[in-house]
Design a protein around this nucleic acid. Sequence first.
DNA 1: CATTAGCACTCGATGATACGGAGTGCTAAC
DNA 2: GTTAGCACTCCGTATCATCGAGTGCTAATG
Lengths: 342, 342
Amino acid sequence: MLTERQLLILKIIIDEFIDSAHPVGSRVISKKDGIALSAATIRNEMADLEDLGYLEKTHTSSGRIPSEKGYRYYVDHIIAPTIKRSEINILNSVLQEGYFEVEQIVQKAAEVLSELTNYTAIILGPEIYDTKLKQIQLLPLSAHSAVSILVTDTGHVEHRSFSVPFDMHASDLEKMVNILNDRLSGVPIIHLQEVIRDEVIHLMKQYVNNFEKAYAYLSKVFIQEQPVKVYVGGKSNLLLQPEFRDINKIHSFLSVMEDEQEIAKLMQTSKEGIHVRIGQENDMDAIKDFSLITATYHVYGDQTGTIGLLGPTRMEYRKVITLLNAFSSEMTKALYLMYKNN
Amino acid sequence: MLTERQLLILKIIIDEFIDSAHPVGSRVISKKDGIALSAATIRNEMADLEDLGYLEKTHTSSGRIPSEKGYRYYVDHIIAPTIKRSEINILNSVLQEGYFEVEQIVQKAAEVLSELTNYTAIILGPEIYDTKLKQIQLLPLSAHSAVSILVTDTGHVEHRSFSVPFDMHASDLEKMVNILNDRLSGVPIIHLQEVIRDEVIHLMKQYVNNFEKAYAYLSKVFIQEQPVKVYVGGKSNLLLQPEFRDINKIHSFLSVMEDEQEIAKLMQTSKEGIHVRIGQENDMDAIKDFSLITATYHVYGDQTGTIGLLGPTRMEYRKVITLLNAFSSEMTKALYLMYKNN
DNA sequence: CATTAGCACTCGATGATACGGAGTGCTAAC
DNA sequence: GTTAGCACTCCGTATCATCGAGTGCTAATG
């Protein structure tokens, strides 16, 4: 257990290092307001904190920098969120520009978030699994091509163009789609496949010629894993951080950022609320010396999305956590308003 | 006018510099196959080429590097495209994985292109202006929200969720959409607005209550500038180039790449075929020391898209030009096949 | 007994200096 | 016209000394 004084010193060191990115020496601390101790005393405390694993040195006679354990302690026990009304107002004014679509709101939020922090913002769009099917439509474009359109009750639209095999008649497909529409409207997307298998197939068999082929075909078209939508803002912002002096680091970081589905995996977290992953705590090797802070937001009921910021381990945790908290609830609010008439 | 020998030397220098990124000295050239001259002679020729503006020195006693004028000459008069069948085969095999959608094909092409070159690939999706409206649909989600869906004859889908003002009745909107569908099906997207103004408005006035409001509303929903779709592949690849030792350069480059619409402007070119812009020839300041090579491709008739590669001025022009030529025609072919049944 | 002043020591950053290598331009010889 | 030879330039690298910031330890202090 840390003493009051150790806690104070740890806090000062981390705050200072977050701010300057340089190792912090005993003199600097002793001159801080609220510290009435000499540098020598501070040095003793620092040595203790290092023994306990909260601090590190870059070389034998350097100042101290926080270890990952130090950051963890800082995040868990030291920081007290402070709300900056002004920053939330920025988001609010942006959100109130009257967007019609979730996509726009989410993308905007990512941009604002990145701009406010100079880190990279990543937002996962709301998962569509809990939403219900509103309508399936199959629109023939020609004798041998068509476009399928799937609409959920939250206004989410998925579409797909495809060509129609020569031995398949448009009328058969149409019949099938009619049946699907009749039976599937209101069914949660996540249950689509089983409902089709358990309840709809026999109907089709009855009414549709060439059933097997048409079914195999349609399932390819409609029933497909929907990739998670990923919104990223401010990839280049992160490069301003001094830890990016090393070009290889930049390259490996950007390579990671290009694979959006990989990022999605990284972000997906079952936990509600704020979640901080520091350095090695991250699952993915490529960001083992970054920190990722995520929060969840909600869209009309059970749909859940994730909003996060990726930055150096030397991250402004307090600010970011506060900000994500605020953004999470503001986005939930804004999206709720958009849907509340449903 | 350059002599045969100057031409040869210029070619060797540029080829060598493209390959190594280091200034090329006279000794290296004199040892090349096909060169039976001493280094001293080469030096004289190099001095002449510098006077003519085709070469530059980085300092008084350095080897030579090509000037932009040199690259320009190289592109216009020296390189003879060589086709590498193997590279095109890669694209073909990728394209034949049976994609249904333009988006997928184009995105894949961008990735392959970047992978083959280690430059950044940028592709503008086909402009939708020449396509015709297939169907307009307005699907109410609740009493006060709806989703609009617009489908073109090429299977392109645009959708938009929006809330419905409280004093507007769904039935009115429905009537309007019916009229729109009746009258607008088959009309080129680019003419939508004028057809509505000239032919459809009076019909609506006749049949729809609360016409003004509904019209103002619908036009907001349906008639809107469509942003060009931009597909980018391999942003991080470019960073491997040695000209990116400077971090600020990376940052400014990536900032540019984040604004897709800015990129679109950069790429849009009225000219058919291959187009090479070297260094200062680019309109945008941020890429004044890059080269951008673009080519056009076509989708079923008049729709035109642009495909391009962004790299350092020290770019493998021959390879890139060949590749873009091939990709342009392969993409045109693949997309034609996709649509040919229309 | 906690605190602190003092001191020797370590290490990184900076700057001066020297030096080798790659390359050029020029001159004179072939 | 071509080339060998040479003086010269400039970059890059290695070496070295120096300075400053910081530490750990010891002994003195209240």
